[in-house]
Design a protein around this nucleic acid. Structure first.
Lengths: 355, 355
DNA sequence: TTGTACGCGTTATCAC
DNA sequence: GTGATAACGCGTACAA
C-alpha cells in the first residue's frame, strides 16, 4: 500500500534520495555515461520502480543538453496532399534512414500560408530543420529558421547562399527522356508539367505563365524537355495525380487531327493518367502513342507496362538530407549535393505510327 | 560593426539587461501574457534585434511550462507503408485539425519491432501520444507511455482498460456490405481480408490462422462478413494495395468452375485490385462479377465506376483522437468513441449472372 | 566510484 | 506596468 497522495511526479533527486545515493549517481545510472557498481545500480533502479519514476524528464534533459533529438520537416501544403505523392513518402523514408544515427524524431510541419501570427516553426523545440518543396513560402520559413540559428537543409527548393541543398539534375534528366523519344523518330510531342506555382492551375503553359512560375522542379524539367523539343506545347497539371494526368491527357488527345505521337509527363502518375486517357480513346500505348514519365516510382495498380521514365533517387534524396543534418549537428559544414537521375527505357515508348 | 566574437547565443536575460529592464518584463514582451508599455516593448524589441535574439528558447520554455507542444503519433511499420494508405493520411489530416487548438506539432514515430534498447518514445519530449494500429507491439508502446504518465489515445487498436480509444463499427459495417450483396441474390461469395498479423502473409485464411490473428480490424470485418456468409472462403492480402488485390483476385478467379459471383474486400484498394484481376480475365464488373470494398476513399486513377463500399469516417477518426488529446491535456477525462461507417451502394455490385 | 554545486534559459508569482 | 526571485529537472565539471 504505497502512498500515492502526492500529485507531483518523482524526480531523479527523489530517486537518489530514496536509494541513498547522490543525484549524479542516479543520473549516470539512467544515462549509462559511466560505470556504476552493480549493487548501486540495482538500488537506484529499485528505488525508481518504487517511486514510479520512469527515467529523466526529456524536457529537462533537452534543456541541459541543448538538444531535443527532434528534427523538423517542413512540407508545403496539406499533409494529406504531400503524402499522396509517392516521391515524398519515399524521401521521408530515406530521411529517417539518414537521421538514424541521431535516433532523432521527425516533427511534421507545414508552411501554412495563412497564419503568420505565431509560426509553429519559431517555437518548436527542434535541433534542425529540413525544408522540402519549392513554394515561395519556403523563404519565410527559412528566415525564421536562420533567425534561430538552427542548422537547415533544403530539398529541391530555393535555398539562400550558404545553405546546404539537395537537388536533382532535373533539366538534364528530362532532356534524356526527350532525347530518347526524339531518337525514336517523334516530332509531334506534347508535354505535361507539374504545377507552376502555389495556385496550381491546370491549363496551357503560356510564356507569361512560365515567367511567373515559381516551382523550380517544374521549370527545370520543362527546360530540359524544351531543349530537345523547343516548340512542344505544354499543359500544366494541378498536381501529381493519375486523375490529373487523365484530365490533361484528354485535353491533349481530344483533337484527332492534331494529336501528338508522344507525350512527355513530368511525373509517373501524370503519365499513367495520360495512358488512361489514351485507353479511353482506343489508342494503344506505345503503338499509337508513346508516353513517358518522370520519377521512376512503383505505381500501385499500373500492372503490366513498364513506364519509360527517368528514375530519380527519391530515397537517396531524403537520406542525403538526413546525413547533412547529422553532419551539421556534429558541427561540420553542410554540403550541397546534386543527385543524378537515371534514364529507364520502358515499354510505353516506341517509334511513331507510320501513315 | 557589431562584435560577433561570442559564440554563445544571447538569452532573454542579455536582452533585458541591454534594454535596461527586468528579465521578467522582457519575457512578457515575447509571450504577450501581460500588458507592457509600448515604449518599453520597443526598447526590448530593439535590444533583441541588436543582439540577434529571436525569441525564447523552446527547450527552456517547455521545461518551465511543463509542456513541449508536441504530440507523438505512433504508426506501425515503415512510414512509407503507413502513408501509402489513404486512410492513414486522411486520419492524419483529421488529427491535425483536432489538435489545432493546441497548435501542437506532430512527432512521427514508428513502433520499431527491432530495437528495444532505447525506445525513442521513452525519451521524446512530448505532451501526449496517439497510438495507431493494431500490432502486438502496440502494447509495448503503451507500457512505456503509461509509465511516463502521458495522456494517450488509441486509434483502432487494443487499448488497455481506462484508455480512451477511437474505433469503428467494423463488424456491423462489413455486415452491411455483405447484406447488400446477399440481397442482390449472391450465394457464391469470396472474401479478401487485410493482413492478419505482423507477418502479413498472403494466403487462405484457415481457422488456425484466424485464431492466431492479431489485427482487430481484420478480425472484426471478417466477422461481420461471415455473419452473413458463414462459409465464404477468405484470402488474406499482405497489405492494402491495388497490386495485392490483383494478386489475390487472380487466385480467387482463376478457376472458372468454382468462381464466386461476388468478392467482398476489406479495403477499397484491394477491391480495385480484384476488379483489375476480373478485367484481365475478361470478366465485366458488375455484370459477371460483383465487387465491394471498404473505406470509401477516393482511389486515384479509378475512373468511372463507383465502388460499392462502406465509407469510414477516416478524417473524423483523426479529429476525434486529436480532440481527446486536447481534453486530456486540459485535465479532463478522455472518452472512448465508436464511430459509425456508412454504407454506399455503387456501380460495382449487381445481381449475379443468370445461367 | 561517489558526492557537491552550479547553471541550462525560462516563466509564474508576487510585491511594488 | 515593472521588477526581484524562485523554481522547472537535469547533467556534469570538479572535488573527495
Amino acid at each position: 500500500m504505497t502512498s500515492q497522495e502526492t500529485p507531483r511526479r518523482a524526480t531523479i533527486a527523489d530517486v537518489a534520495r530514496a536509494a541513498g545515493v547522490a543525484t549524479s549517481t542516479a543520473s549516470v545510472v539512467f544515462s549509462g555515461k559511466a560505470k556504476v557498481a552493480t549493487a548501486t545500480r540495482e538500488r537506484v533502479l529499485a528505488a525508481a520502480a518504487e517511486l514510479g519514476y520512469s527515467g529523466p524528464d526529456p524536457r529537462a534533459a533537452s534543456l541541459r543538453r541543448g538538444r531535443s533529438g527532434i528534427v523538423a520537416v517542413v512540407l508545403e501544403g496539406h499533409l494529406r496532399a504531400a503524402f499522396l505523392d509517392p516521391v515524398t513518402t519515399a524521401m521521408m523514408d530515406g530521411l529517417t534512414d539518414g537521421l538514424a544515427d541521431l535516433s532523432a524524431g521527425i516533427l511534421l510541419m507545414r508552411d501554412d500560408p495563412g497564419e503568420s501570427d505565431t509560426a509553429p516553426l519559431a517555437n518548436a523545440p527542434v535541433d534542425a530543420v529540413v525544408l522540402i518543396g519549392c513554394s515561395g513560402r519556403t523563404r519565410t520559413s527559412l528566415e525564421i529558421v536562420r533567425g534561430r540559428g538552427l542548422p537547415v537543409v533544403v530539398i529541391e527548393g530555393d535555398a539562400g547562399e550558404g545553405i546546404p541543398r539537395i537537388s536533382l539534375d532535373n533539366a538534364a534528366a528530362a532532356a534524356d527522356v526527350a532525347r530518347h523519344v526524339r531518337d525514336l523518330g517523334h516530332t509531334e510531342v506534347a508535354l505535361v508539367t507539374l504545377h507552376l506555382d502555389a495556385a496550381r492551375e491546370r491549363g496551357a503553359v503560356t510564356p507569361a505563365r512560365l515567367d511567373a512560375a515559381t516551382v523550380e522542379v517544374t521549370i527545370d524539367r520543362l527546360a530540359g524537355m524544351r531543349s530537345i523539343f523547343p516548340d512542344a506545347p505544354a499543359i500544366s497539371a494541378a498536381g501529381s495525380l493519375i486523375d490529373e494526368g487523365l484530365l490533361v491527357g484528354r485535353m491533349l488527345l481530344a483533337d484527332a487531327e492534331n494529336r501528338p505521337t508522344a507525350v512527355l509527363a513530368q511525373s509517373d502518375l501524370l503519365a499513367v493518367g495520360v495512358m488512361r486517357a489514351a485507353e479511353e480513346l482506343g489508342l494503344r500505348v506505345p503503338e499509337d502513342l508513346s508516353v513517358a514519365g518522370f520519377d521512376g516510382i512503383a505505381v500501385d495498380g499500373l500492372g503490366g507496362p513498364v513506364l519509360t521514365t527517368s528514375v530519380q533517387p527519391a530515397v537517396e534524396k531524403g537520406r542525403a538530407a538526413g546525413e547533412q543534418v547529422a553532419r551539421m549537428l556534429r558541427g561540420e559544414q553542410g554540403i550541397t549535393q546534386n543527385l543524378t537521375c537515371r534514364f529507364r527505357a520502358g515499354t510505353t515508348t516506341a517509334p511513331p505510327p507510320v501513315h
